[in-house]
Each structure stands twice: as structure tokens, then as C-alpha cells.
């Protein structure tokens, strides 16, 4: 079997030729590369899905507080608030869950990078919220749930192949932006959209993160990272909604990734995880830096 692909177009073609679908093809590919049975790959997927849940539960069970004081229980506050304008259970949960996982990360807890630690709340936040709200029969062991995480990973693989997943190399579009695109594809998969539409949802999402700066205050993965996880969960849900309605991205996914790379290269070093520009360089941002030194 030819496991190689350089673009979404190629991946979709190979997945469809194989008859396995995108998630099944990639599980088989991981197994072939590792020289192990597919069950082992699925077992590891289940382990990581469960680990993401533990982080989520930890973040909601008690207010998370970081040493810097910049992270202080936003997830618990949001989850217990009844004042939000949107009363949909899935949407509200997705925001709180994404926050919860990323607060645990900011506080040095155990998480699963997806694709990075600073963006680790977005995919699990959206997918676990869907499960809790709309599909309680799913769990780490269910194939459909694993396939959704695999679809999200697929988008990450494609972005890494043609651009980057590092904020220091491409700005935050490469981290929280990539995670939003991944979550859009994963949610599409849970909603039963065909593979092509899932990738299109990722394109719609990523287009709306292009140019995002990585300008963390005081060099910490907290501001704006933690709250951005909630905002990007909303982005992913918007993208999956459009894709489900049959709205296509005018620019195909592979070209959006090309644009992302070009924009990442053009971003100055001050906006690529050096904490020398943007929010980090604001008077308040600098005052945190001084306080924490």
C-alpha cells in the first residue's frame, strides 16, 4: 500500500482508493509504520482520548490557578454561569471544556498536546462536548469517536507537511489556528459529514485564523492562549456548521495551508513566540513581565 501523501487532495484520493476512509486509512498507516496491529494504534488513541478527558474533568472540578496568577479559574466560572447569551448545551460546554483543558496545561498539569500544548483544549473541548451533549453512547473505545480524533489529526498532519505546527515558526495560526481547523474536521466527522466536507470545514476554519500572532505575555502559555482555546472552539463549530449546510470554501484546503505558510514566514520574529511584540509588549503585558521576573 502506498501510504505517502503531500496534500489533502492526495490523502482523500488514497483514502477513498483504499476503501478505508480517511480515519481508517491513517490508523492503518500508523500501524504499518510501527509494524504493529491496528488494535495497538486504536488502543493508544483510546488512552490519549481518556487522558484528555481526565484533564478536562480536573479543569472543571476546581478552579485552576497558575503560579503567575494570569490563569485563575475561568473554566469553572464559565461552566457555572447562567448569564451567557447562547443557551445551547453543546456550544456552552465546548467553550468551558476547551478552557478547562488548557487551564490545566497552563498550571503544569498532564495533558495531550493536540497539536501543541498551548492549543490542547480546542479539539477535546469540542469533541467531548458533542459526546456529552448529543452522543452519550460514544467513549474512548468507540470507533466513531476515535475516528473523529483521527480526522482532526489528519488535518494536523497535512498542515505540518506543507507549513508548520510551531508558534515560533509560524505564529499562533500554526497552533490554535491549526487546532481550530482540526476540531472543525473532527466535529464534521462526528456529525457524519463525508471526508471531503470535513477537510473543507478545516479550510473554512483555518482561513479565519490566518495571520494570528503568537505574542504570549511574559513568555507564558497563558495570555492570550488559555482564553483563545475557547474562542477557537467557537470558530471550529462555526466552520462545521457552514460545511454541514453544504457551504464550500472558495479556496481549497491545500492552498489555504500554502497561504498560512507564506503569512507565517512574513510575520516578524517579534510575533512568533518571542514575547517581544503584540500583547506581550503592551504596557500591561510588560508590567506582568516585570512583576514575574
Amino acid at each position: 500500500m502506498n501510504w505517502r501523501f503531500q496534500s489533502a487532495a492526495e490523502l482523500l484520493a488514497r483514502a477513498s482508493e483504499s476503501g478505508l476512509g480517511m480515519a481508517g486509512f491513517l490508523v492503518a498507516r500508523d500501524a504499518a509504520y510501527a509494524g504493529c496491529p491496528e488494535e495497538e494504534v486504536r488502543g493508544e488513541l483510546a488512552h490519549r482520548i481518556l487522558t484528555s478527558r481526565r484533564a478536562l474533568d480536573k479543569g472543571l472540578s476546581e478552579p485552576q490557578a497558575s503560579l503567575s496568577g494570569l490563569t485563575a479559574g475561568a473554566a469553572v466560572k464559565l461552566a457555572s454561569s447562567a448569564l451567557g447569551p447562547v443557551r445551547d448545551d453543546f456550544f456552552s460546554k465546548a467553550l468551558a471544556y476547551a478552557l478547562a483543558v488548557n487551564e490545566v496545561n497552563a498550571c503544569g498539569g498532564k495533558i495531550v498536546a493536540f497539536p501543541t500544548a498551548g492549543s490542547c483544549g480546542i479539539v477535546p473541548g469540542v469533541l467531548w462536548a458533542w459526546r456529552d451533549s448529543r452522543a452519550p453512547e460514544l467513549g474512548p473505545e468507540s470507533r466513531a469517536f476515535q475516528d473523529a480524533f483521527a480526522a482532526a489529526s489528519a488535518v494536523g498532519i497535512l498542515i505540518a507537511a506543507r507549513a508548520t505546527l510551531a508558534g515560533a515558526a509560524g505564529g499562533c495560526q500554526a497552533e490554535c489556528g491549526a487546532a481550530a481547523a482540526m476540531a472543525a474536521a473532527g466535529l464534521g466527522s462526528l456529525m457524519g459529514l463525508p471526508d471531503g466536507a470535513c477537510v473543507d470545514a478545516a479550510a473554512l476554519s483555518l482561513k479565519n485564523c490566518l495571520g494570528l500572532a503568537c505574542d504570549p505575555v511574559a513568555g507564558l502559555v497563558e495570555v492570550p492562549c488559555v482564553k483563545r482555546n475557547a474562542f477557537m472552539a467557537a470558530n471550529a463549530i462555526t466552520a462545521a456548521s457552514l460545511a454541514a449546510a453544504g457551504i464550500r470554501s472558495a479556496i481549497p484546503f491545500d492552498e489555504v495551508v500554502g497561504a498560512m505558510r507564506e503569512i507565517g514566514d512574513a510575520l516578524p520574529a517579534s510575533l512568533k513566540e518571542s514575547s517581544e511584540g503584540g500583547l506581550a509588549a503592551t504596557p500591561t503585558g510588560r508590567s506582568y513581565w516585570e512583576k514575574l521576573r
Binding site: 497552563a106 503544569g108 498539569g109 498536546a113 500544548a117 494536523g156
Partner: peptide, 20 residues
Amino acid sequence: SLGLLDVFGPVMIGPSSSHT
């Protein structure tokens, strides 16, 4: 080219995949 478990991982102690 990365695999699924390269992107969905590692399981790690926060806060940064690249810097930690």
C-alpha cells in the same frame, strides 16, 4: 510525514509542547 499519534500527542506535563 507525521502519523496520527505524532499530532495527537505527546501526553505531557504542561505548559508548552515546543518549550517544555
